[in-house]
Amino acid sequence: MQLTLEFGGGLELLCDSVKSHNINVDPQDGEKQLTMKNLLSWVRTNVIKERPEMFMKGDSVRPGVLVLVNDTDWELSGQLETVLEEKDNVVFISTLHGG
């Protein structure tokens, strides 16, 4: 399954300062669907290069990170249970405080 991942608000620093990633990831053995929970652990292993604790806490993202699936807050699509589809766009963005 092809997905586009984007990192912003400083999270890109955890993956070699690359903001946009075109990835190919498939559901794990025995599973029909790819959920955000699956994707997060895949991202942690395959995309995040340093300080994974700045990206995740437990099996979700750390506080202060907004997750958007196709430009919509993942709270509205089921958070970790959100089922991903071909060509979906997933954005991880850290909330900014500067001004």
Binding site: G10, E53, M54, R62, P63, G64, L66, S94, T95, H97
Partner: peptide, 15 residues
Amino acid sequence: CLFPTPPPTNACQRC
């Protein structure tokens, strides 16, 4: 509602 828990201190970059 969006950010019920504050982020870790070292995640808050300053200008």
